[in-house]
């Protein structure tokens, strides 16, 4: 099973991931991280783990792993 992880502390609320998400699975949360940004949150029901958010993110917020194992090309 694929898992998406969000490092909220790194998010700078730029919104590039949200704009490019093909399934509208991403949105800004109502929380603030320690830098004062509202970090992204993932709607797991909509997320297809395509990795486009990872591709667009300038700040290394996202990680997508298979069965809890991460890294590299498949």
């Amino acid at each position: 099973m694929d898992v998406i992880t969000v490092k909220e502390e790194r998010c700078k609320e730029c919104g590039l991931c949200i704009a490019h998400c093909p399934n509208e699975a991403l949105s800004f949360s109502d929380r603030l991280n320690s830098a004062g940004y509202k970090p992204v949150q993932v709607d797991d029901a909509k997320c297809i783990k395509c990795g486009i958010c990872y591709t667009m993110c300038p700040d290394g917020v996202y990680e997508i792993s298979h069965n809890g194992e991460s890294g590299g090309e498949d």
Partner: peptide
């Protein structure tokens, strides 16, 4: 789907502005 993880040599918070392309 492809597994995606920021490579270890760069897996740190960066101080670029929001939306900057450097990252």
């Amino acid at each position: 789907a492809k597994a995606r993880k920021v490579p270890a040599i760069i897996d740190n918070p960066m101080s670029f502005c929001p939306g900057c392309g450097h990252g």
